[in-house]
């Protein structure tokens, strides 16, 4: 029995996919794929169907397909999304336009180059510098549930880069440290065990750091893990500004 356009679920899923092959092309193009509809398919499943059954030359990153490895971020109809978390049914039967994450150079097809972030990340000292170091033999540092809760959500970042794709500040000027890196700095600043907030100030409060952020807030809106990088950056602004005021009023006082 031939499927008809009126039966729900029998019309194909239409994917308009950004293609760019640097070995052969200087300009990208969109390629249309039509594949069978399955109501429990996420966009990543649809892309894998294309890769496995239709066109093995389509390149994209993915790994865990459960929203925690951070590999499969792409623009889906203009919005940065984790493609393993967005269902085809959300768009079906309208065509779905899939592009590489905005604001990043495209290496090939849906694969972006994120080396910029990988180079920036270490500069914000994204590791714990114990305020009061002690050897492992002396056991864990105590941290109350409330102290944990204070920074916990800023520690949930999976480095998926959706926030960079949402941030027009980064899009206009990629010297900006960006939401994820700054949120991680704030995560450690707020950790009761840490003592390196002043050390991080050099980079975090530099021109490319928190003050470059104009608080568009779209990073927080698109964050799939509710990290709220925009909030983290505003908290960092308040916190460093307070420190500065204190240092002006009480010169020599311990920050």
């Amino acid at each position: 029995m031939a499927p008809t356009d009126t039966d729900p679920g029998t019309r194909p899923v239409v994917l308009d996919v950004f293609r760019f092959l640097p070995d052969a092309e200087t300009e990208p193009r969109f390629q249309r794929y039509e594949i069978p509809y399955q109501d429990d398919h996420v966009v990543l499943d649809a892309l894998n169907h294309v890769k496995n059954e239709v066109d093995a030359t389509l390149s994209f990153r993915w790994a865990c397909r459960m929203g925690v490895c951070g590999s499969c971020g792409m623009m889906v109809n203009g919005e940065p999304r984790l493609t393993c978390e967005v269902f085809v049914s959300e768009y079906y039967p309208e065509p779905i336009r899939i592009e590489p994450l905005a604001h990043f150079p495209v290496a090939r097809d849906l694969v972006i180059n994120m080396e910029d972030f990988m180079e920036k990340l270490p500069t914000v000292t994204p590791w714990l510098v114990p305020a009061d170091p002690k050897p492992v033999e002396e056991g864990e540092f105590l941290q109350s549930p409330a102290q944990l809760a204070a920074y916990k959500r800023f520690s949930m970042c999976i480095n998926c880069m959706l926030c960079y794709s949402a941030c027009p500040v980064y899009g206009l000027d990629d010297t900006f440290m960006g939401p994820a890196a700054l949120a991680l700095a704030q995560r450690y600043n707020m950790d009761s065990r840490d003592g390196a907030k002043a050390e991080r100030a050099n980079v975090v409060t530099s021109h490319e750091g928190i003050w470059e952020c104009t608080y568009v807030g779209d990073c927080t809106r698109v964050c799939p893990k509710e990290v709220d990088p925009a909030g983290a950056i505003q908290m960092a602004k308040l916190s460093y500004a307070t420190d500065w005021v204190k240092s002006m009023l009480l010169p020599g006082a311990n920050r």
């Binding site: 760019f20 640097p22 905005a102 150079p105 290496a107 180059n113 206009l172």
Partner: peptide, 14 residues
């Protein structure tokens, strides 16, 4: 095309 990468610039109407 920069270093074999396709670079998309934001337009003024972003």
């Amino acid at each position: 095309l920069i270093d074999r990468h396709y670079v998309r610039k934001l337009p003024a109407t972003w």
